[in-house]
Simulated scan of single mutants.
Amino acid sequence: MKLANRVAVVTGAGGGIGRAIAIALARRGCHLALADIDGDAAADCARHARALGVRASVHPLDVADRAAVRALPSQVDAVHNRVDLVVNNAGVALGGSFEQVGEDDFDWLMEINFHGVVRMTRAFLPHLRLSNDARIVNVSSIYGIIAPPGQSAYAASKFAVRGFSHALRHELEGSTVAVSVVHPGGVATAIAKNARAPAGAPPHEIEKGRAIAERLLRMAPEQAGEIIVRGIEQRRARILVGSDAKIAALLERLSPVHYWQLIRKATAR
């Protein structure tokens, strides 16, 4: 896929993987509509993108806000007059077992991680169909391939993104709109630090969980962004980011029921 002079909408563009994707796209001459709940962070990303010679608009957005998502395509069109690429990257984390996580917290996470992806896709698909070469890129997770204990809500949301992406790809086969699903492994973003903890969870458990998660977040976001954008250029339907994601995918394929026992033994060693 030739990205020069295309227009990409990127959610969660204010930091982490989203910002890295946006800058990698800008380096290839792709114009940007940058959406993030933190408008100042999105504006900072836009400044860096413009320094690379592309047009970049800023759109403060909560993907859980239905009305705001419905209004976004017209806002993007007013600046860019087209859309060729939508990167659904915005997401949040929530630790805790299923019994620890309350219904409101579970629904909060699903509204952002899954329903946000669906809303963005519904809002922009008619516009993407006007492009001669368009793509929807949905960021799932390594936890959209494997489901560790203590991640029931997060894994549910990321498996949902994966299933939605696969079905949508099949439905759009033969059109000018393709679909990629991205499974990042441990990328050094602030997602673990900013993760919501279930009410009533012991503080020492929360801190232990965050410490473990942060040790696993090793890859620089900039490297992850480059891998993802190269995958877009290569029209890959599935983009695995990092050796940990590749190993997890292999283990899940070889042992779809008992992979967690294998992973637990390996990490213990």
Results as ranks from 00 to 15, higher is better:
His48Gln: 15
Arg50Asp: 04
Ala51Arg: 11
Leu52Asp: 09
Gly53Ser: 11
Val54His: 10
Val54Pro: 12
Arg55Val: 15
Arg55Leu: 15
Arg55Phe: 12
Ala56Val: 08
Ala56Ser: 13
Val58Glu: 08
Val58Asn: 08
Pro60Trp: 06
Leu61Trp: 11
Ala64Asn: 08
Asp65Gln: 06
Asp65Ser: 13
Arg66Ser: 14
Ala67Thr: 14
Ala68Asn: 09
Ala68Gln: 08
Val69Arg: 10
Arg70Tyr: 10
Arg70Gln: 15
Ala71Pro: 05
Gln75Trp: 03
Val76Leu: 02
Val76Arg: 08
Asp77Lys: 11
Ala78Met: 06
Ala78Glu: 14
Val79Ile: 14
Val79Cys: 10
His80Asn: 12
His80Gln: 08
Asn81Gly: 15
Val86Phe: 04
Val87Lys: 07
Asn89Thr: 07
Ala90Tyr: 06
Ala90Lys: 01
Ala90Asp: 01
Val92Gly: 13
Ala93Met: 14
Ala93His: 12
Leu94Arg: 15
Gly96Asp: 05
Gly96Pro: 10
Ser97Trp: 01
Glu99Ile: 03
Glu99Arg: 04
Gln100Lys: 11
Val101Asp: 04
Val101Pro: 03
Gly102Pro: 08
Gly102Val: 05
Glu103Lys: 13
Asp104Met: 02
Asp104Thr: 13
Asp105Ala: 13
Phe106Leu: 11
Trp108Met: 05
Trp108Asp: 11
Trp108Thr: 07
Leu109Arg: 10
Met110Asn: 09
Glu111Asn: 15
Ile112Val: 15
Phe114Leu: 15
His115Asn: 12
His115Met: 14
Gly116Arg: 00
Val117Gln: 00
Val117Trp: 00
Val118Glu: 01
Arg119Lys: 10
Arg122Leu: 12
Ala123Thr: 03
Phe124Leu: 05
Leu125Ile: 02
Leu125Arg: 00
Pro126Phe: 12
His127Leu: 10
His127Thr: 07
Arg129Cys: 07
Arg129Glu: 14
Ser131Val: 06
Asn132Ala: 13
Asn132His: 14
Arg135Leu: 00
Ile136Thr: 00
Ile136Val: 08
Val137Cys: 04
Val137Ile: 13
Asn138Cys: 02
Val139Gln: 09
Ser140Val: 04
Ser140Asp: 07
Ser140Met: 07
Ser140Arg: 09
Ile142Trp: 00
Ile142Asn: 07
Ala147Phe: 01
Pro149Lys: 07
Pro149Leu: 10
Pro149Gln: 11
Gly150Gln: 05
Ala155Asp: 02
Ala156Glu: 04
Ala156Ile: 03
Ser157Cys: 06
Ser157Pro: 05
Lys158Glu: 06
Lys158Ser: 09
Lys158Phe: 03
Ala160Glu: 04
Ala160Asn: 01
Arg162Lys: 11
Ser165Cys: 03
His166Gly: 09
His166Tyr: 10
His166Thr: 13
His166Trp: 11
Leu168Trp: 11
